[in-house]
């Protein structure tokens, strides 16, 4: 418990540092990109919107830095991240909350699936070396070493396009209204298959290889020999003794990869023009949409920190040796 509280305090500190950095970056940027954008959009912005941008980017030069800082935090706590220029006049928080479910849905689910399938295959390959599962490895390793960008484009060129069942871009059929009905959900699933498959292919073998090698390492441990000597069933030795220990290093890796769901999806979403956070970040960067970029970086920071905390909790739950201070 004490350990977790320490970690939690550390992550809070990191969050504070990241946000403070976020506060200073626009203030030291040369030129004044945001105010020039504001003046370009003169007349389209309400005075409230201008005010919130001034707070976020420190345009109000009359205020002291300290007062700016206080105002910045107050505004963050209200959830006001300013106005997006790309998706004018939608507030950044709304833009992000529209795209986040797509990213979490596609990349979140595939990250979990990739971990589960890769780990299961790794257990099989490492436990029965030389079996058919083991012989998959060179193929999956090759696929994972192909740059993702290229893999996605090849998948689109070969499988998507006119007359194909796989759509090549978007998150759902244009014209459908997002709703919880079977048209929309069916279309969303249909659109996610190709990107999901490419993510699985490129990320699964990492888990598989890691798990296989850990299984091989663990298999030579004394306690595995003891488990065999005790006459335990193969299944119990493989899972409760070998896999259970081999999993430990992979679990924290998995928790960390959950943190990169939001930040690491740029390529997937660009290749498939998928309406998630990564694609939006891409659009935001092209349009110098500083408020949107700042908002997304904030979300990425938070998700990485939460994932780190998850990794700590998982380790604590799975490895009794870390529970010493109980």
């Amino acid at each position: 418990m004490k350990f977790l509280l320490q970690r939690f305090a550390f992550y809070l500190f990191t969050l504070w540092a990241a946000i403070t950095l976020n506060f200073f970056i626009p203030r030291v940027m040369p030129g004044d990109p945001v105010s020039s954008l504001i003046s370009k959009n003169q007349g389209r912005l309400t005075s409230d919107a201008i005010h919130s941008l001034e707070v976020l980017f420190g345009l109000d030069k009359k205020q002291s830095l300290w007062d700016q800082y206080i105002g910045y935090w107050q505004q963050l706590f209200k959830g006001d991240l300013g106005m997006s220029f790309t998706f004018f006049p939608t507030p950044v928080s709304e833009v992000i909350s529209q795209s986040l479910p797509w990213t979490v849905g596609l990349v979140g689910i595939t990250t979990i699936l990739s971990f589960l399938i890769g780990t299961a295959l790794g257990v099989g390959a490492g436990w029965k070396r030389g079996s058919w599962i083991d012989s998959l490895l060179p193929a999956t390793t090759f696929l994972s070493s192909v740059p993702y960008f290229w893999l996605g484009l090849v998948a689109i060129a070969l499988l998507a396009g006119p007359g194909s069942w796989f759509p090549s871009s978007g998150g759902f059929t244009p014209g459908l209204v997002p709703a919880w009905d079977h048209y929309f959900i069916g279309s969303a699933i249909n659109h996610s298959l190709l990107p999901a498959a490419t993510i699985l292919i490129s990320s699964m073998s990492g888990w598989m290889l890691g798990m296989r090698n850990m299984m091989v390492t663990v298999a030579s441990e004394d306690y595995i020999t003891v488990a065999h000597a005790k006459g335990l069933s193969d299944k119990r030795v493989a899972f409760s003794y070998a896999a259970r220990n081999a999993l430990l290093p992979n679990v924290s890796g998995f928790a960390l990869s959950l943190g990169f769901i939001v930040g690491g999806t740029l390529l997937v979403e660009i290749v498939f023009s998928y309406p998630g956070v990564g694609y939006q970040l891409f659009q935001g960067v092209q349009a110098y949409d500083y408020p949107l970029m700042q908002g997304i970086f904030l979300v990425i920071t938070i998700s990485v920190l939460v994932a780190n905390l998850l990794a700590d909790v998982a380790y604590l739950l799975l490895d009794p040796r870390t529970r010493k201070s109980g």
Binding site: E221, D222, Y223, T225, V226, A227, H228, A229, K230, G231, L232, R236, S240, Y241, R244, N245, L248, L318, D319, P320, R321
Partner: peptide, 29 residues
Amino acid sequence: RWAETSIVFQGAMNSLNPVHKVSVQLMDA
């Protein structure tokens, strides 16, 4: 195994599975 011939290994220090309690490892045999 174990029912007729059991063995205490040279590496008895590492003979216990670190993630299971002593009771579990005595009882599963």
